[in-house]
């Protein structure tokens, strides 16, 4: 248990600003995506193992609660992907560019690209949810 406390205290109290926040966000979004991925592989495999139950799983995903979670999931994947590409670029192609000012700048660009992708995507997903679940826009 002391390991858990030491690690969590380190996560919370380390003051590395942008680099630290993007490290934490990368971990949280990655874990969230991975946990969803386990469920998603299993529910999709219903089409072969339990085809009668597949529609029940899909109906769950169509609910409002899961619709909101889906918007969050898309943020997780977009941020994790764009930030992962940033890390892979610096590690594999340009390790000489790892410096504090460049990290601060590139984390901000990462967040900007993520939001530019996520905001229109979530607008379309919310439109679909309001159309199908609440009868808005003539649905």
């Amino acid at each position: 248990m002391s390991n858990l406390k030491t690690t969590m205290t380190g996560y919370a109290s380390y003051r590395g600003r942008e680099g630290h926040y993007s490290f934490l966000l990368h971990r949280i979004t990655g874990l969230g995506t991975a946990l969803f991925l386990i469920i998603h592989i299993l529910d999709t495999s219903f089409v072969y193992f339990f085809p009668d139950l597949y529609q029940h799983a899909i109906n769950l995903y169509r609910s409002t609660l899961f619709g909101i979670a889906e918007v969050g999931l898309v943020f997780c994947v977009f941020f994790h992907g764009v930030n992962g590409l940033r890390v892979a670029f610096f590690d594999l192609i340009a390790p000489r560019l790892w410096s504090v000012p460049k990290q601060r700048f590139s984390t901000k660009i990462t967040l900007l690209i993520t939001l530019l992708m996520w905001i229109p995507a979530s607008a379309i997903m919310l439109y679909n949810m309001l159309y199908h679940n609440f009868g808005w826009f003539g649905g």
Partner: peptide, 26 residues
């Protein structure tokens, strides 16, 4: 990661945004 960028972003944009879960069934 480099391989997953087009694969996962493509999958998400197609299935969650363009098609949407309300049009996915067996």
């Amino acid at each position: 990661a480099i391989l997953l960028i087009p694969l996962v972003f493509g999958h998400l944009i197609l299935q969650d945004v363009i098609v949407g879960v309300h049009r996915i069934d067996l």
